[in-house]
Design a protein around this nucleic acid. Structure first.
Lengths: 235, 235
DNA sequence: CCCTCTATTTATAAGAG
DNA sequence: TCTCTTATAAATAGAGG
């Protein structure tokens, strides 16, 4: 999780596993204690490990026993209670996973369209793109535009002696495919269920027109985007 | 822990407590699951809360039962086992607390001496300082010097067209009392049990000499510090 | 209340000694 | 191997919808 992102899977190397175990056990117990304190609740953590014959028990074996007897009593009424609990827990997990999936799809779509954008910047025409791609691409460009405007604003605000043109080119410099794909900067593409703004409709008409243009139509001529924005990527 | 550092104590406000509970519970279970996966160990977490009639049980009630029965069997041999465990846990905590105290003392000492240093820079003489303070002060100055040298080195390495003098003054600019006290930069003062280097002994002699100098002796003349370092704070 | 969005703090993996 | 340090990832408080 630091120095390098690490995959959560069994650590093969003995020493490393033990080191990680000690660190994370400490972290876990701390978290448990904080949760218990902050929210005034009963909690207990038991950890078995090959490094100790005794399990690690928090906050104390006595307390753990107390909590445990409480636990033992309750689901005893019927195993069905337990099943319910299991089921709802599973449902919860599925829900969470679905949410993560959705977000991942969104991110993927953003990356996809970003790649398309850079292909276009490389000279590829728009002919092979379908309506949805064009639409999303337009949205992405809009977002980038807004981002650049924001940065220009900040830069001009920060130093009046610097021209905004210089600022603009500085921003544009960052927009390499790698930077766009790797940087953590959010561009907020809400791909699937995005609302259709007036500008979007206008753009869709524009796109339709373009798709009937001669084949050598190039992106350059599209970039000023129908409005008179003087901050086009490539003047 | 974020936006503002928060004290670990019971959250009075109901909604905030619940929100925190949900967030942290999620985090805790994630940590537990990661630990279990990474190190291939049995672990179980049970959390009682007023927000659910059922306790939160991880990884599943069945699994928890399994782990628990394992736990129940073991300390039953004698309560003394439990007592031991309690005692050793307590010892561990005390040890940790002592360590933290030591570090805190060290940090405090560093801040203290840093303040003294800036008082001196403000024109206060060295007359009121005892041997230990002078010694630590010398050490601090040495560290700062090294730090500045390091930065000059890095800066001159980074851009050959820039003069090292400019770089030096840039470093010196940072050395306001606030910056020194608040910045996270480590200066590594090992106050109490520091080893005595030859330079230190030399300085101690120097200090002794200074303490017998006329009262209007000022810090300025001490700053080049016995060696011929051309990078004195105030030339 | 519950989500989402960041600024910030905390946890921790990898190095260094 | 253990500890301490440091750079980076992860958790999360507080603010907004």
């Amino acid at each position: 999780m630091t120095r390098s992102k690490v995959k959560i899977s069994y650590i093969t190397k003995d020493s490393a596993r033990k080191a990680t175990f000690r660190k994370r056990k400490k972290g876990l117990l701390k978290k448990a204690s904080e949760l218990s304190t902050l929210c005034g609740i009963d909690a207990s953590v038991i950890i078995y490990s090959p490094y100790n014959t005794q399990p690690d028990v928090w906050p104390s074996p006595t307390e753990a026993q107390r909590v445990l007897s409480k636990f033992k009593k309750m689901p005893k009424m019927d195993q069905s209670v337990e099943m319910m609990s299991q089921e709802s827990l599973l449902k919860q997990r599925i829900e969470l996973a679905n949410k993560q999936l959705k977000r991942q799809c969104r991110d993927n779509r953003e990356k996809e369209i970003t790649q398309v954008m850079f292909q276009c910047l490389g000279g590829q025409g728009l002919e092979n793109l379908n309506m949805m791609d064009l639409n999303d691409l337009g949205w992405l460009l809009e977002q980038n535009m807004k981002d650049i405007d924001r940065r220009i604003y900040m830069l001009t605000k920060a130093s009046h002696s610097q021209g905004s043109v210089a600022a603009a080119s500085a921003s544009a410099t960052m927009a390499t495919p790698e930077a766009m794909l790797k940087s953590g900067e959010k561009v907020h593409v809400e791909s699937p269920e995005r609302e259709v703004s007036p500008e979007t409709e206008q753009r869709q008409q524009l796109i339709k027109d373009l798709m009937h243009s001669p084949e050598n139509m190039r992106l350059d001529s599209v970039f000023s985007f129908g409005d008179n924005n003087p901050n086009a990527f490539f003047p």
